[in-house]
Nucleic acid binder design. Structure first.
Lengths: 210, 210
DNA sequence: CACGTTACCGACGCCTGTGTCAGTAAACTG
DNA sequence: CAGTTTACTGACACAGGCGTCGGTAACGTG
């Protein structure tokens, strides 16, 4: 068996605790998750958690920052405004979204954010700013570009762009609630999502598919 | 002041308790809600709840049946397949959805269902069946009808119809998470939602607006 | 190898929510 | 207006999670 002796790893602990916490939240939800459970998964004693975090709430907050806020920053950063078509850019953004959010364990955190968000106003505010500035801003630039290049119809400019990502949120929600019972195929959903949106905003009369 | 004397009302109690529970859940969320709080709101003693329900979980389960499952049954029931255009029917269904779900206190229950659903598999299963049969079935009939009448493009038949209601779910989700910070105008969102979907599935080349 | 520092731990006490139970009084019966 | 039934109640005991604190042993230093 592995050595029972405890290793001291001051630097690695916080990340280990967050990983364990994600697993714990995944299985029990936030309310039923306990520091004891997190500690067990991390292979450390219960009290050790309190050396690095102020308690369950603080662990959760750190987890959200690490897994929801930070990744969004990256996405916003490395989207080069290369001179590809706006449609292509839009497809790429949706692709990233489905890959990073819908298909991953991130959905667990969204579930908890939905459930407990009102207790963490600072996190919600931060996330909101990230979404509106990074996500929504990105969409806005792509759509404007598409209109300017004659790819999209001009009246699209008036749309609340949140409708464009609606089907993706639907998919996340479905997976969270009914995933165990009747899982969605994200690939299929993404294809239909893109088709609907493109047919809805493209300049020319709709084509069968590509 | 109102008389402090306790009235005995065996028939009215369950409904009163459920109303109080909804208010309690609305304010505290599920985890932090307590039978004591529900009893206080209902103006009854703590133990009385246990005369009618087996505990907090049972109250919640009854509440979901009353407010999520039952209304859906009605919607599915009284949708007459009158000979109006498919587009008009679709607009009516979306209108009902935005009115009944997005703008109402039902959103609170969805929040809790998202958060705690996995602990109530029977409820989730029931809700799933209602949604797929009633909701999805209704959409399917409307879309097929629209295609048959030449209103919608035939390739729409292949779509996963859940993408059509995506933006509405996006709105619900946004209200739940960011509602306090940055509320959406459901009317505006609904208009844009309908515009996007219609432009995406209609037969003719898109028109500016109606 | 001896010593000091400190990462780590499990037992302790506190607190909050939960479900029950024996008692109270409102309604009903004659 | 007695007597019976039963809807209703607050006090109780119990359970489990939470954060702390004194002690233990792993690591660094000479």
């Amino acid at each position: 068996m592995a050595d029972k002796r405890v290793k001291r790893r001051k630097e690695a602990r916080p990340a280990e605790i967050l990983d364990a916490a994600l697993a714990e939240f995944e299985e029990h939800g936030f309310a039923k998750a306990t520091p004891a459970g997190i500690a067990r998964r991390a292979g450390i004693g219960r009290a050790t958690i309190y050396l690095y975090f102020d308690g369950k709430d603080a662990v959760f907050e750190a987890l959200l920052r690490q897994r929801l806020i930070a990744p969004l920053e990256e996405i916003g950063a490395d989207m080069p405004t290369a001179d590809e078509s706006a449609e292509r850019m839009l497809r790429r953004v949706f692709g990233i979204f489905y890959e990073e959010v819908v298909g991953s364990r991130t959905a667990v955190l969204m579930r908890i954010l939905i459930a407990e968000g009102h207790r963490f106003p600072s996190i919600v505010e931060l996330y909101h700013r990230q979404i509106t500035e990074t996500g929504y801003g990105l969409l806005r630039r792509i759509v404007d570009r598409g209109i300017a290049r004659g790819e999209f119809r001009p009246d699209i400019a008036e749309l609340d762009l949140r409708v464009l990502v609606g089907p993706a949120m639907m998919t996340v929600l479905w997976q969270i609630v009914f995933g165990a019972l009747d899982p969605i195929d994200p690939k299929r959903m993404m294809a239909d999502h893109i088709k609907l949106v493109m047919d809805g905003i493209r300049m020319r009369s709709p084509q069968p598919l590509c």
